[in-house]
Design a protein around this nucleic acid. Structure first.
Lengths: 240, 240
DNA sequence: TCAAAAGTGTTGTTTATACACCCATGT
DNA sequence: ACATGGGTGTATAAACAACACTTTTGA
């Protein structure tokens, strides 16, 4: 697979290429992220059929007749999580996902951000799904730590993109409930960044950016001072 | 067309969608940019066949058998400009480019940056190509200022992406010859940003970023002080 | 009164912006 | 000597990073 990052293309000769057309298979898949219990999780599905039967993979399927790519991705997301109206963005299109599928297969990847508590995973025996911590991915049937196709690379790319996005957009709204504490918000950012952040600077930053605003409500979790609840200024994706 | 920018997906019901599969047409197109005579230009092709016969469009074609997407894009680039080994990056994949083509058509867009003087345009009567200033796009046969398909939106998106990239990468190397003056470099940045930049601050910035370095060579253009020649520290794409 | 998470300001450093004059050359 | 583009530095403002103590609550 060619990594989905900027690079020079080694200009191969164009001889006897591109002249012969065909109708490749078109698939759409969705990298679904959530944050739960201090960690970033991704939804994977264990394949119940060939190829890669028994391996864990990013959920996806073929593009349906008369649906756009965005619609196909949203459909996949609903099928696997039951949620709709969340942040969903096209990631990259892979033209050579693996060597076992027929030449010319094209897979359009999306990534989605969902609130853990809004999700209900489908009950299925043959193609089960489960959440995995981003640093504790499951093993293949052979016992090695690997996913079907080139899905590990895809995940890495999706994570890189998510980290960028978090810096200059408000997309975190899609990972949180309508009201949340500053600590919950910070946990989301820390889980994705993969490092601890300073409490005071974090608060200053998100308030200065204007992506969240305080409410009058407070919430009491345990034997300590109650926390003020915040809410997103907008629940539409916005570049700050 | 759905704009290739972040947005919420309106979750349509998944009823009778996605179950029926098909083999959509897969096309690859390349937005080719260059900078020439103080301005940013894009290469367009006048379509010699239906649909949109006689309209100007972004060059592209169908994905060939047994070539990857990157290879198809590089092939297209060579066919239209003769250049290879330039900056070429996947842009976005469009699933509903226009309403006239059969449902399910998928078009993978790339964008490329080429040095004007390296390009030799093919001589063709039926499908001619030409450079157009980004703010003086050609008209349709009906005389309106519009391109085939949704190509105007695609161009706008490509330009937005290019502007971003220029800020934090060294991709400008692909627009310039091996040796160039600081003014030439600044012209490239100004053409793409669409605004004038301060000479001293610009120089400081590119040197501090380390993307270019001075050489011992100078060049004399006219009746004034000779200019020092610079060269890119690396001609591989790099994120600064 | 103790433990646990919530909440709050200041200082120093780095980065970005604004801005004006001299230099080397050909005519 | 003059016209032309090449080349340089400083001061201010803004953004970011580091850092420690007090508050509120339940047990």
């Amino acid at each position: 697979m060619q990594l989905p990052r900027a690079r020079d293309v080694t200009g191969k000769t164009a001889s006897n290429k591109g002249t012969d057309h065909h109708q490749p298979t078109v698939a759409v898949f969705v990298v679904i992220f959530t944050v739960h219990e201090q960690g970033l999780k991704v939804l994977l599905i264990r394949r119940g059929g060939e190829p890669f039967k028994g391996w864990w993979a990013i959920p996806g399927g073929r593009l349906g007749t008369d649906e756009t790519l965005d619609e196909a991705a949203a459909r996949k997301l609903v099928e696997e999580t039951g949620v709709r109206d969340v942040y969903l963005e096209q990631l990259y299109t892979f033209g050579d996902l693996d060597k076992t599928t027929p030449a010319g297969a094209v897979a359009i990847g999306y990534f989605a951000l969902v609130n853990y508590d809004s999700v209900s995973l489908p009950e299925r025996e043959d193609w089960p799904t489960a959440w995995f911590s981003i640093d504790e991915l499951p093993a293949s049937p052979a016992g090695k730590l690997e996913l079907a196709f080139n899905n590990k690379d895809v995940l890495d790319y999706a994570l890189r993109r998510l980290r960028y996005k978090l810096e200059y957009t408000n997309v975190a709204y899609s990972l949180l409930p309508p009201y949340f504490t500053m600590s919950q918000l910070q946990t989301v950012y820390e889980s994705i960044a993969g490092k601890k952040l300073d409490k005071r600077n974090f608060r200053k930053r998100v308030l200065a950016m204007g992506i969240v605003k305080p409410t009058e409500k407070t919430v009491l979790f345990g034997a300590h001072r109650p926390a003020k609840l915040y809410t997103f200024s907008s629940r539409q994706p916005q570049i700050i």
